[in-house]
């Protein structure tokens, strides 16, 4: 069964690293070029099990490109990406079984209903029907989408699509969630539901790799923050480390962010 395999894989990894928290996402010297343009330049970072990692940066810094490489939508030009112990290029199917991805734009198949989309995705993750049914009911309740779930997704608002996409990501109980700009288009209530859910996921041992523009969200949720600028990591550490990044204590994360990403 799919979940026992996952659990075994996880246990093997934990046993192999006794006493240490396993690394769930690891990027080693990753570079991505589009012709002459280098979008991500020699990026190295890692996210531990149960860690909530915030990935910040100005527009066009390389956040989405990095995320797309992690989830296998882009192939890195050089470097290695390991997710939950699997190389995403060489063992892409195994890697993809263990994580969930939430894109920045929640595109769905317009002609399917939300429920059908859930079943469709669960099938791709080889989830048995009974379990799928249970999980769907859980996420419907959690995200308060019961009134809309049997309508075609073409009728959904941006926020509703976003909720359905995030809910779909939780169906197969991933070990790692890679999420790109989750708060865009969400109303305050939806935003609260998403924030609480992600926090709970992290507390239950799931690693979260979240890209965001929102400094308050990063400050509220993230254990560690990485800042990317012009394709390079310019900072990686905790909130406290960030505030003392150049030895001088700053007033807010915004000040540090603006200073680090100054052209």
């Amino acid at each position: 069964m799919w979940y026992t395999t996952l659990a075994l894989n996880l246990l093997q990894r934990l046993n192999g690293n006794k006493g240490r928290v396993p690394t769930m996402v690891e990027l080693k010297n990753v570079t991505k070029r589009f012709g002459d343009f280098t979008a991500v330049n020699d990026l190295t970072l890692s996210v531990k099990g149960g860690e909530f990692f915030g990935f910040l940066g100005p527009n066009g810094a390389g956040k989405t490109t990095t995320i797309k490489m992690i989830v296998g939508l882009f192939a890195p030009t050089s470097g290695t990406i390991i997710v939950n112990g699997y190389d995403v290029v060489k063992q892409s199917i195994e890697a993809k079984s263990t994580f969930a991805y939430v894109p920045d734009q929640p595109f769905l198949y317009d002609k399917l209903t939300g429920r059908e989309f859930f079943y469709f995705l669960a099938g791709l993750y080889r989830m048995p029907k009974e379990l799928t049914r249970e999980r769907i009911e859980e996420v419907i309740e959690l995200f308060e989408i019961g009134d809309w779930i049997d309508r075609r997704t073409e009728d959904y608002s941006q926020g509703m699509r976003q909720r359905v996409t995030i809910a779909a990501a939780l169906l197969h109980k991933p070990q790692t969630i890679i999420i790109d700009e989750p708060m865009i288009g969400l109303d305050p209530r939806s935003s609260k539901i998403v924030r609480d859910t992600l926090r709970k996921q992290a507390e239950s041992g799931c690693s979260i790799f979240m890209s965001t523009h929102s400094l308050p969200v990063a400050e509220e949720l993230c254990d560690r923050i990485g800042i990317i600028h012009n394709g390079k990591i310019v900072f990686c550490g905790t909130r406290e480390e960030m505030l003392r990044s150049d030895g001088v204590k700053k007033k807010s994360l915004e000040d540090v962010f603006l200073q680090l990403t100054e052209e």
């Binding site: 469709f120 669960a122 099938g123 049914r133």
Partner: peptide, 22 residues
């Protein structure tokens, strides 16, 4: 119907049903 059980492998069933509805 997506909710219905099928004798097909789960991934294949998902793709076929999606194609049918789309």
């Amino acid at each position: 119907d997506f909710r219905k059980k099928s004798h097909l492998p789960l991934q294949l069933e998902s793709i076929l049903k999606k194609e049918f509805f789309l």
